[in-house]
Design a protein around this nucleic acid. Structure first.
Lengths: 246, 246
DNA sequence: GCAAAAGTGTTCGGGTTACACCCATGC
DNA sequence: GCATGGGTGTAACCCGAACACTTTTGC
């Protein structure tokens, strides 16, 4: 689907009825962001540009997970992203907006009927390396609160993805550490939990909780040049986590 | 897919790449059972018969949820089954066994390539009315422990469905009441939880827990003609549940 | 009366909640 | 020195886990 160039040759599609879409969530220390790609087109003689989730029809020689990984790899250059499949969308009218149909057919260069999409979710660190690759693909991070009307049913998919994260994190909160950089402060960690769970967390109780998590290890390093007491950095140690839990 | 008759006319398929499969779990008071349909065929000149999950390719005029509901309605006659979509299966080699391919092509009367299936989960009461309809379709309840090798990747789907139930019930145990008849004893309820969670539950603590759930209301009715102290019946009151929780 | 399952309370410990003040730093 | 966010302890409460004996019924 990432085709505006026209003459690139693509591997054969498995069929034009099945796609994957990826909801990639990143945390910048303050807000949750979602990775979106720009879509340009013309409808009724008027140019428009809006955004969509990264996605693609699936190729003949790949399975669903593979297709989702490929989409993200093409976009970010990253290979080993943890992806969770979370839902299929196949409503008859999800490709009913003529704008969407026309855009697809031009991008796809084929008649498009009904498409079922399998949606994937990834939690990643926002990272300089990724950002460069994103620019090249006219894609970028958009704060969740600033997301406007997206193509297809992608607003729905995004909303349900956020619900899914919340539920999944309830069972296994450790997955959320994928959102954080290698070093993070206690309040970044807390802010992240607050954003996911949607409610404030008591600061003192939160510090107690961190202290109990042996896999969150305090570093000697502290913030530099901030206009207040410098915060300590912590890191997430997956080895310790794997050893003691599960 | 439920076609052994040959001359029945079916509505047009959306395409032959997308299907739904239903994992329907029922509880008989002692064991968990799954609803399976018989599959008959011939391969290399040898007749075989095994079992599969109920499923179907999707028709043009229905969406995914609709297709799953149709499958269950055709099979059981029941209309308002609560279905949860839980995962898509689209591995390239899920239709690699020649036996499966041949069977599908005969049932489908069309060339079959790759099929992505969207799997659904339902928890239902085992019920006389359903059972009659099942006989007519050569389908039936099979205790989970007695499930043999199933068609396609249906063993995988079943296994993952059971995991899914466990996780989902952890967040929202009330969904499990769908498995129970209108009247049930405390030990039936306990047995059900034990089967889902895979471990024994202390009897006294369990009674305390029931007592705290205002939506599990004790009835005056008791078991009849059992060779031990007769157990009290309880019922699940969804109105009370909806009022006080959520 | 005996086998078989139903039903009933108390104690202990760990984890979660609520809550208010001093600390370090840059400007 | 003041504004800004960082960091700390204690008491109350709730919930889950452990644990053993009496009751009712049919045979």
């Amino acid at each position: 689907m990432e085709s505006m160039q026209g003459e690139v040759i693509y591997p054969p599609l498995a069929n034009n009825h099945i796609s994957v879409d990826c909801v990639v969530i990143g945390f910048d220390g303050t807000q949750l962001n979602v990775l979106l790609v720009n879509r340009h087109g013309e409808e009724d003689g008027l140019a428009y540009h809006d955004m969509k989730l990264p996605g693609s029809l699936i190729y003949q020689d790949e399975d669903l997970d593979g297709a989702a990984l490929r989409v993200l790899n093409e976009l970010t250059g990253v290979k080993n992203i943890k992806l969770m499949q979370f839902r299929a969308y196949g409503s008859k009218n999800r490709t009913s907006d003529p704008k969407d149909v026309h855009w697809l057919e031009r991008a796809q260069q084929a008649r498009v009927e009904r498409i079922v999409t399998i949606s994937y979710l990834a939690l990643v660190k926002i990272d300089r390396a990724i950002d460069k690759s994103l620019d090249a693909h006219k894609a970028g991070w958009v704060p969740l609160n600033d997301v406007k009307r997206l193509a297809f049913d992608h607003n729905l998919i995004l909303t349900e993805a956020m619900h899914y994260i919340r539920d999944a994190a309830e069972v296994n909160p450790v997955m959320l550490f994928d959102l954080l950089p290698r070093k993070f402060t206690a309040s970044q960690l807390r802010t992240m939990f607050e954003l996911i769970y949607g409610h404030a967390i008591d600061v003192r109780n939160f510090h107690k909780k961190i202290a109990m998590m042996d896999y969150v290890v305090p570093l000697e390093e502290r913030q530099q040049g901030v206009a207040h007491r410098a915060a300590r950095y912590y890191k997430f140690d997956r080895k310790i986590y794997n050893k003691n839990r599960r």
